[in-house]
């Protein structure tokens, strides 16, 4: 009985000194974070609020914004068919990316991650498109997609094989898939690299143990490799979705969102109104909507994938 208060006192003492030291440490940490925080506030937070402010004006970018119109810009955007089309296109790109592009990257990562001859060569080749600038990629694929079989590589092959040439970038039903092919070509290497890094972190012993227990390579992949890659896949999916929402350069270079908005994405829609039509207030409102969508996705995604990797597997 005597013992308890003393222990308590001691504990409290320890807690207090620890608290003191912790506070000190934290002040030091805060001071070190300060420069970054200032830059973050100045170049990220401030522009966001500035855009929110501009988005409530009918403003062309010349002189100060004076024509206050409240939420009219938002109402117009959310009821605009073209914007809804852009959202639909983004959803198509996300679905195809998650359904085709990432699995492809994963399969290739597993292949070039093995001890196969020439694997480092293939690794480099697969990663090469990602190194190329987006504008170059866009122009190159425009040449490949050219509707004239005597000038476009893809159509010339199709004609040789006896197919009808396809106007890849001019057909309103085809264009979004043509752009998806280019996106896949450009970005699968990046995701492959992510998976490769993840694969290297899986200890060989686990796979060996499983093999000794009689697991074949397919079982090995689904029960060992895939679950242990969970956190990498999580990152890769996250980046792929955000990248799709913000996709701009390739689309703008190749089709300008056309023909007739058939390949419009939210970002090209924003640019069309902000910098082609100079309706900067309207463009700002689009930017804010995109920001909110990205934000919602990020928070939801984090909440849904919070469980530890070894429980969910993904």
């Amino acid at each position: 009985m005597q013992f308890l208060p003393v222990a308590k006192q001691k504990l409290n003492l320890a807690k207090n000194t620890m608290n003191g030291r912790r506070t000190q440490d934290r002040i030091v940490i805060a001071l070190f974070l300060l420069p970054a925080l200032i830059l973050f506030l100045l170049f990220v937070i401030y522009p966001i609020f500035r855009s929110v402010y501009f988005s409530t004006f009918d403003w062309k970018g010349f002189g100060p914004a004076v024509d206050y119109i409240g939420l009219d810009n938002y109402k117009k955007i959310l009821t605009d068919e073209v914007f809804l089309k852009a959202i639909k296109n983004v959803l198509i790109i996300i679905t195809l990316s998650l359904g085709l592009q990432l699995p492809l990257a994963l399969i290739l990562a597993v292949l070039v991650g093995r001890d196969l001859p020439g694997r480092s060569l293939f690794r480099t080749i697969f990663f090469l498109p990602y190194v190329l600038s987006e504008v170059n990629t866009g122009i190159m694929w425009m040449l490949l997609y050219n509707a004239d079989p005597t000038r476009g590589f893809i159509n010339s092959i199709m004609v040789q094989l006896g197919f009808e040439p396809i106007a890849w970038l001019a057909d309103m039903n085809v264009v979004i898939f043509a752009i998806f092919i280019t996106l896949t070509w450009k970005y699968f290497g990046f995701h492959m690299l992510l998976y490769l890094t993840g694969l290297q972190n899986i200890p060989k012993e686990i796979e060996e143990a499983a093999r000794i227990d009689g697991a074949n390579s397919i079982q090995n992949f689904f029960y060992i490799t895939l679950p242990l890659l969970g956190s990498t896949i999580k990152t890769s999916v996250y980046m792929s979705v955000l990248g799709s929402i913000q996709q701009f350069v390739l689309v703008w270079v190749m089709t300008r969102g056309g023909p007739v908005n058939a390949s419009e994405t939210m970002a090209t829609y924003m640019y069309r109104f902000g910098f082609v039509r100079y309706q900067l207030g309207y463009g700002s409102a689009v930017a804010i909507i995109m920001f909110i969508l990205c934000m919602i996705f990020s928070l939801l995604y984090q909440a849904l994938t919070r469980k530890p990797d070894y429980i969910t597997g993904l």
């Binding site: 997609y145 509707a147 004239d148 000038r151 106007a167 970038l169 089709t255 056309g258």
Partner: peptide, 21 residues
């Protein structure tokens, strides 16, 4: 118009004309 004119750029239009197509 030439095939694929809906997706062609101004440069491609000039190329089509310039090549006598």
């Amino acid at each position: 118009f030439q095939d694929g004119y809906l997706g062609a750029t101004h440069d491609e239009m000039q190329a089509t004309f310039g090549n006598g197509k």
